[in-house]
Design a protein around this nucleic acid. Structure first.
Lengths: 148, 148
DNA sequence: AGCATTCCCTACCTTTCGCATAGGAATAAT
DNA sequence: ATTATTCCTATGCGAAAGGTAGGGAATGCT
């Protein structure tokens, strides 16, 4: 329960990978998938909603590939997750009380609403640029440079 | 994605129902299920983990039923959800980095960890007593008293 | 003691959905 | 034209969620 789907996780990692190579040539789907250990064909499907959300841009043909549609700094994790997963409201009744008869007087609904907001807030606070920085720091720590 | 399971939602509502009748006779499973529109047999299964977690107590035989194992004020929503769903960590790698090779240097993991914490915090802040109060307020608002 | 009532336990079934694979059409560069 | 790439749609599979069923064990009442 409450586990984020592979869609959300893969999409986030793919976008993170792109942010690591921002401002170079477009990355091939193949390269992204390999770097992040994701099935190429599966990842391909995730590009559809990401493009629709104007977070990702693809170029076809030779010298093609994918690139971020806007600067990493301007892309919040929330946008990525919402693009591939839809609204972040945990339950329909949170946004549309109509769907449940009990909704008008359901304290549980209020609680789930607060949880939804906590999640949304956490995902809104972090941008791809933040993640990129964390990633670089972590890599430097995990694999200390052996060059003198 | 990220949708809480019926286990978590039903368990919460059942416990809420019990808290609304705290300090009266034990409630029958049948009564709880009917009041909250939950399948009786399905709800019955949820009582197992709730009893194991010492949140719920059942009495068999005539005049039997269920009651809260401790005061509503001392039961956090988090305890209920964890009882029926296990740990709240969104991903195994958050708690046990070992399960993923990429974990030591994975910025995405850090983000999911923060989201996990946000959820846990939101669920820890609210007790059954809080929910009970919200419930009563909501009911009073939704169904204004027609008696003079 | 006997009986009704209720919780307790375990197995099973059904459906849904996450996850992934496959194959081809469109587009761009050389 | 050929090659390399993204784009699009359909389909399959397996696991897990969600729900059902039936009988056993304890308790209280008469």
């Amino acid at each position: 329960m409450l586990k984020p789907s592979t869609r959300a996780r893969y999409a986030l990692r793919a976008m993170l990978e792109l942010s690591l190579h921002e401002a170079t040539r477009p990355l091939l789907l193949r390269e992204i998938a390999k770097a992040q250990c994701i099935s190429e064909k599966y990842l391909e499907q995730l590009t559809v909603p990401l493009r629709c959300a104007r977070l990702l841009r693809g170029r076809r043909g030779s010298n093609g590939g994918y690139e971020l549609a806007k600067p990493a700094k301007e892309i919040a994790a929330r946008e990525i997750v919402e693009a591939v997963e839809g609204r972040l409201d945990l339950l329909d009744c949170v946004r549309m009380p109509v769907v449940c008869d009990r909704a008008p007087a359901c304290a549980a609904r209020g609680l789930w609403g607060r949880v939804s907001q906590a999640i949304t807030a956490a995902l809104s606070e972090t941008t791809l640029a933040d993640l990129r920085e964390e990633q670089r720091l972590a890599e430097a720590k995990a694999v200390p440079s052996y060059e003198i």
